[in-house]
Design a binder for these strands. Structure first.
Lengths: 156, 156
DNA sequence: ATCTTTGCAAACTTTTTGCACCAAT
DNA sequence: ATTGGTGCAAAAAGTTTGCAAAGAT
């Protein structure tokens, strides 16, 4: 026991197993690296490198932005982290262990997860139509969320 | 009668009507603006601002990159142009009049168009599953093209 | 003559890289 | 004692902005 660590909201097993995985793969466990990992698992949403570097609004110790990027790349190589782009603005990083994909609203930015069976259906439709095997991880689906559809009077 | 213009490959009507539209909307027809418009319509694929500024590999007169960006923004405001992102790298611009969307291969970069009925099907699936009204214009679908699937031995 | 638009240069944003020092193993 | 990782600073890469001069109307 004795886990007097930073964030109380974190699903401990995920963070812990990520930390373990990193050590097992022979990477050194430094302060910066731990902050990056914990910051990634703390919120329930993808975060920017800048947010991680700044300590996620006081929840963690800040560390250098370059180190954050280098760590994110290392973690991505290990398959623990993935990133996505929403067009303009910085890239968004999330634990790869979260097996779902996202739809993001182009207007308000709110994103939600897409159930796996829906993703499978989408892949089937595209595969049949054009033969591509589509993924929704690096460039997530985007569109208008129900709320913004109302605000913009989008019909049906 | 007397159309000694730059590109012979262009579907003339589109370029011409775009040029007309711009004039009709009260924008001045400058050399730089014409180059941007013609360069957008010339190739059968989305192009980068840099490509346009450089004269599209000798096909058009080069012009300043800042002017290209300003013109692209103006044309986008007019609804004549749209742009999309493929993650890393520069944005890609295309005439908005082309009513189709794209799937891009994450590995080789090759992109092809997605038939409208397939897009409608995709929208239906997502709308039913999560209520979002998805678009594929700003962030196109990405995945692996059939060729790259083979090369990577992706099953089925 | 007016007032957009241009080209150039500089700023800005996001990400990468070089390097000397530090610290995990 | 190694050598991987860190912080800092500078460089890239893509895009935006300020401004005086050029040019379309």
């Amino acid at each position: 026991m004795s886990v007097p660590r930073s964030s109380p909201v974190v699903p401990a097993s995920d963070v812990q197993s990520a930390l373990q995985e990193v050590r097992d793969r022979g990477l050194r466990m430094t302060a910066a690296r731990r902050q990056v990992i914990e910051a990634l698992y703390a919120p329930d949403r993808p975060v920017t490198a800048e947010e991680i570097a700044s300590g996620l609004y006081g929840r963690f110790m800040p560390c250098d932005l370059a180190s954050v990027y280098r760590n994110l790349e290392a973690l991505e190589d290990l398959g623990l982290v993935r990133h996505m782009h929403l067009g303009h603005g910085p890239g968004l990083y999330a634990p790869a262990s979260l097996s779902h994909e996202y739809v993001a609203c182009e207007r308000c930015g709110r994103s939600r997860t897409v159930p796996a069976d829906c993703l499978a259906l989408l892949r089937g439709v595209v595969a049949k139509a054009v033969g591509y095997r589509v993924s929704f991880a690096h460039l997530p689906l985007t569109g208008l969320c129900p709320t913004c559809q109302e605000k913009l009077h989008v019909r049906s």
